[in-house]
């Protein structure tokens, strides 16, 4: 039996300029072709080439493209449950989210939800923990959030809104000049590597961390359900493993590129600031209130949320034991050494 020729078009939600994220879909395309001797071809189109970036879910649902590469939280307007396939504020970190999706029943919990949209969602890429964005003024207390005009979308915007922030989804091309002149006070994007390309550092001095609304952003490879069903089983496996590979690939790239990019930003005058604990606590409280409110009126959301939260609890317990203790110790020790070395140099 010979393997059939399959040709798909993949609509990415991202522009080519976001080479790491956009590159995940291209990576899948390359791997899939390589593993099938070129029989299974996926051609990737950047946002807008086939459909606008925010319309790819509709395209897959309607079967007008075979597949798409996106971040599911773009579609929280259709249903907030989409967010769990991407990330939610104060959710899990990359390792934990992957554990939930790949081995912890996350995909199984989301599958019936995606079936309502005629879509199969495969995890495909991750940004890791993001930065909290660019601010024109410092945030020292919760009161500083009141009246703060920030360009931030989705659920994070709703959480911020609970604390008096004014989420402003102004036009993409207006963000830079608006941030420059103070028409808005803050805007967020991804992490150092991607942010540096936008040049927000030139107009907003304070670069906040962590991006508590995106402790890890899982990207998704959407496949139209009928197309997925008719795919030969071997190709389905190939696609699965190519997507897994892309998750590792994007994570590795970001982790390799971000440190240097952050140094470059700081060298260019950026001032790093951590969100004060008090602010984080207020946001944390607001976020979980919002989830409870949403779960009370959305059955699908509640179902996935219960699963997600239960898994998160056990993860947090485990990660505090070995991972976090190890991390904390080596970072601490390393910092001590560096300080010592710097001190000696000075002497």
């Amino acid at each position: 039996q010979t393997a059939p020729e399959v040709r798909w078009r993949c609509a990415s939600s991202f522009p080519r300029t976001l080479d790491t994220i956009y590159g995940a879909a291209e990576h899948v395309s390359r791997r899939v072709a390589a593993m099938t001797d070129g029989k299974f071809q996926i051609r990737v189109f950047q946002a807008g080439e086939l459909v606008p970036g925010l319309q790819v879910a509709d395209a897959v649902q309607g079967g007008t493209v075979e597949c798409a590469h996106t971040a599911s939280y773009y579609f929280v307007g259709k249903d907030p449950t989409f967010a769990f396939d991407a990330t939610v504020p104060f959710g899990m970190n990359t390792r934990q989210l992957n554990a939930w999706l790949y081995s912890g029943g996350g995909r199984e919990a989301l599958r019936p939800f995606f079936e309502r949209f005629n879509t199969v969602s495969i995890p495909c890429g991750n940004t890791g923990a993001q930065m909290g964005g660019w601010f024109r003024k410092e945030i020292k207390t919760v009161q500083d959030l009141n009246g703060l005009k920030m360009r931030i979308a989705g659920i994070a915007g709703q959480v911020f809104a609970k604390l008096g922030v004014v989420p402003q989804q102004i036009a993409g091309g207006d963000i830079y000049p608006a941030l420059e002149k103070g028409t808005i006070d803050a805007a967020e994007w991804i992490g150092p590597y991607d942010d540096a390309k936008l040049g927000f550092n030139r107009v907003a001095p304070f670069y906040y961390y962590p991006g508590w609304w995106e402790g890890a952003l899982n990207l998704s490879f959407y496949v139209a359900k009928p197309k997925h069903d008719e795919l030969p089983p071997a190709y389905r496996e190939v696609l699965e493993s190519a997507c897994r590979d892309a998750t590792l690939e994007t994570m590795a790239k970001y982790d390799a590129q971000n440190p240097q990019a952050l140094r470059q930003l700081v060298a260019a005058g950026t001032q790093l600031r951590a969100f004060p604990r008090e602010v984080l606590q207020a946001c944390y409280k607001a976020a979980f209130e919002l989830y409870d409110e949403t779960a009370a009126r959305n059955e699908a959301f509640k179902k996935v949320y219960d699963n997600f939260r239960a898994f998160r609890d056990t993860q947090f317990q485990w990660f505090r034991v070995a991972e976090n203790t190890f991390d904390n110790f080596v970072y601490f020790q390393h910092a001590q050494e560096q300080r010592g070395a710097a001190g000696e140099q000075r002497r």
Partner: peptide, 9 residues
């Protein structure tokens, strides 16, 4: 089906 992308565009 491909032309069905038109409304989205």
């Amino acid at each position: 089906a491909y032309l069905g992308n038109l409304p989205l565009r």
